[in-house]
Amino acid sequence: MLHDYPKTTYGDTIADIYDLLHAGWDPTATVDTLTDLAGGGRALELGVGTGRLALPLAAAGTPVTGIDVSPAMLARLREKDPEGTVEAIEGDFADFTAKGEFAVAFAVNSLLQLTSLEEQRACLRRVREHLAPGGVLVLEEANPAAFTGGGLQVMNIGPDRLQLLASQYDPMTQQYRAQQVILRDGESRLSPVALRLTTPTELDLMAELCGMRLRERWADWRRTTPYTLESRQHVSFYDVG
């Protein structure tokens, strides 16, 4: 297994090329759904990173507060957002405080980066405390069934870069450890990833214990593709109970 490392490691090692690696991602469906859920209220993002989602969401008219543990990621966000359209908070979203209440809170492939049951549960408690009455939590997270095999995968091939993922999974602890290997411009870099692959039903139980109930679950943000065992991710919507 990979050695332990600080929570800031992933963001700090990849912040300068993060947007490039995700250049083909289209935020439209996610922004449209979150805008509708927010209904003119405020949104809270867990793991705001470089703002690849928070900035277009704010541009669509929803005030956004974003939390991230990586100083390098937040520095990149501030470069892209010099006017501070997105309120950025540096901190661990397992234990955070933000001003006011939010109509919607969301995480995109971030909650499972909290690698213990206690941290994930603590995060959901804090989210519940920050959601306004009638608020909604939306989680886009990995389907563990699609990621437990381990091994080596080719993630991206471009004219000037190659992205590989080497991974291991321990079913006893639900710990997933991986190294992204990025070859670009004649250079190579490693970006480690650590996740606790929490099942959707386990997330449902944790959310319920924190005062939120599952409303619906899909495989996409447009809510047109049913979630199945073969889906690579789920998009789950939780109402304040």
Rank of each mutant, 00 (worst) to 15 (best):
D68L: 13
Q153L: 13
G150T: 04
A107W: 00
T85A: 07
G84I: 04
D160M: 04
V69F: 04
G135V: 08
A98Q: 06
A103Y: 02
G158V: 08
A132L: 13
V154I: 14
V108C: 13
A58S: 15
S167L: 03
P56Y: 05
A103V: 13
F96I: 01
T62Q: 02
G100K: 09
F106S: 03
S167F: 00
A103L: 11
F147C: 08
G135C: 10
V108A: 07
D68G: 08
V136T: 15
F147M: 12
R78C: 03
G150N: 09
R161D: 15
T85H: 04
D95I: 02
G61C: 09
L164K: 11
G51H: 12
V154N: 11
R78P: 00
R125T: 07
G158Q: 12
V138R: 05
A98N: 08
R78V: 02
L137N: 03
D68E: 09
P159V: 06
P159S: 07
D68V: 12
T50C: 09
V127P: 02
G61E: 11
G149K: 11
T148R: 13
G47Q: 09
V69H: 06
E83T: 09
H130V: 03
A105L: 05
F106N: 02
P159Y: 06
G47N: 13
L165V: 05
S116R: 11
R161S: 15
G91S: 09
A122W: 02
I89G: 01
D160I: 03
E87I: 10
E83M: 06
R76Q: 15
N156R: 10
L162P: 01
F93M: 10
E118P: 03
D92C: 09
A59Q: 14
F93Y: 08
Q163T: 04
Q120H: 10
A132V: 06
F106G: 06
C123Y: 01
G134F: 15
G149N: 10
D95T: 05
E79P: 07
G100H: 12
V154P: 06
N109S: 14
D81W: 14
A145P: 00
L139W: 05
A107D: 15
F106I: 02
F147G: 02
G91D: 05
V154G: 11
N156Q: 14
N109R: 09
P63W: 06
A145L: 14
G134C: 14
G51R: 10
L74I: 03
T50N: 12
T115V: 15
L152I: 08
S70Q: 10
I67G: 04
S116Q: 11
A75P: 05
R52P: 06
P82K: 05
V108K: 04
G47F: 01
V64C: 10
G84C: 10
N143F: 00
L152C: 04
Q163F: 02
G151A: 06
A60C: 13
R78F: 12
E141C: 06
T97M: 12
K80C: 00
A103P: 04
S110K: 06
A88L: 03
P56L: 12
T148Y: 02
I67H: 01
A107P: 08
K80R: 14
A142D: 13
V69W: 03
T148S: 08
Q153R: 15
A88R: 01
R52I: 11
